[in-house]
Simulated scan of single mutants.
Amino acid sequence: MSNNELKEMTLSAMEFIRRFLLHVLPFRFMKIRYYGFLANICKAKAILLIRRLIGKDMEARLFINETLQEKVLRLTGKDITLCPHCKIGRMVYRALLLPGLNTS
């Protein structure tokens, strides 16, 4: 296929299935989607290096220990710990209530 030409091909059902099954992995095999510099194990280092190389060196280390509330406040300017009704009181996370459990 040169010059982005689309070509049509007629296949028998058996040949189509054979070609299709070439893409199915055997039992207990796992497809590796990202490898090299995009692998999860080295993604953080690679992103910092890429930003430094293109001149976008951000001080990402400052934000590593940031809580969710701090991150939302920094990015949006909204304090999600404020009470949505009075905008004065603070909402503090104490525990997760599971649905269907009686608390009384």
Rank of each mutant, 00 (worst) to 15 (best):
A44E: 10
Y93L: 14
N40M: 04
R61W: 06
A60P: 01
E15G: 03
I50W: 04
E15A: 12
L48D: 01
A13K: 14
M91E: 03
N40C: 00
A46W: 00
M14R: 11
C83V: 11
P99Q: 01
N102I: 09
N40D: 08
K71F: 08
E8W: 00
Y35K: 11
L25A: 13
G77I: 05
I41Q: 12
Y93H: 10
S104V: 12
I64T: 09
R52L: 11
L22K: 15
E15M: 10
V92L: 14
L53R: 04
T81L: 10
T103S: 09
L53E: 04
R94V: 15
L101K: 10
S104E: 10
F16H: 13
L53C: 09
K56G: 02
E15W: 03
A44I: 12
F16D: 03
G77P: 02
Y34R: 12
L75V: 12
S2L: 11
C83W: 04
V92Q: 11
A39R: 07
R74H: 14
N40W: 02
Y34E: 07
F16L: 14
T103D: 06
T10W: 01
Q69V: 12
L22T: 15
A60M: 15
V92T: 15
H85M: 09
E15T: 09
L21A: 06
Q69R: 08
P99V: 01
F20R: 08
K7E: 04
I41F: 03
L48Y: 01
E70P: 03
F37H: 07
D57E: 15
R74F: 09
I54W: 01
R19L: 15
L49R: 08
L82W: 00
K78R: 14
R52W: 04
A60C: 12
I54Q: 02
R52P: 03
L96Q: 09
L11N: 00
A44H: 07
L25R: 10
K31Y: 05
Y35Q: 12
L49M: 14
A46Q: 02
E70Y: 07
K56W: 03
M9K: 07
I50P: 00
R33N: 13
R74M: 13
A13H: 12
I41W: 04
E59D: 14
F63V: 10
L38A: 08
F37M: 07
F63T: 11
